[in-house]
């Protein structure tokens, strides 16, 4: 892990990429519509097919972004999971920061002032 002191921030390195490989492989498969449909038909079976561990499966079940990240998920692959759920990056930001979506959008706008 590269040393850093940046709060609330993941430096997605080799350790993360090893830990999250199965979860990210599943999310990468969601580029294809047929795979998204297969996941929606039976989420558990799809997680099994990709070999997710218990922590990853629970995070998927709970739609919990911080837990998905803690389980080694990379945000760019997780975004494809979010696509299935019709969540955009403001929804994800609000969930991770514990804010309402409106408050999160206001935080973004405030950065410009």
């Amino acid at each position: 892990m590269q040393h850093h002191d940046i709060p609330g921030t993941i430096v997605y390195d080799g350790a993360e990429a090893q830990k999250g490989y199965a979860l990210n492989a599943m999310c990468y498969s969601f580029n294809a519509a047929a795979n998204r449909e297969e996941f929606k038909r039976d989420e558990d079976a799809y997680c099994t097919k990709y070999g997710l561990n218990d922590e990853q499966r629970a995070a998927i079940r709970e739609r919990n972004v911080l837990k998905l990240l803690a389980a080694g998920g990379n945000v760019y692959y997780l975004a494809k999971f979010a696509g299935i759920l019709n969540l955009n990056v403001q929804d994800l930001g609000a969930q991770q920061t514990g804010m309402s979506v409106e408050a999160f959008k206001e935080k973004l706008a405030a950065a410009g002032r």
């Binding site: 940046i6 609330g8 993941i10 911080l66 990240l69 975004a79 930001g93 991770q96 920061t97 973004l108």
Partner: peptide, 13 residues
């Protein structure tokens, strides 16, 4: 921009 982690939404003008 930052999409992930509890610092999500970080912008530095």
């Amino acid at each position: 921009h930052q999409l992930d982690g509890t610092r999500a939404g970080f912008i530095n003008k």
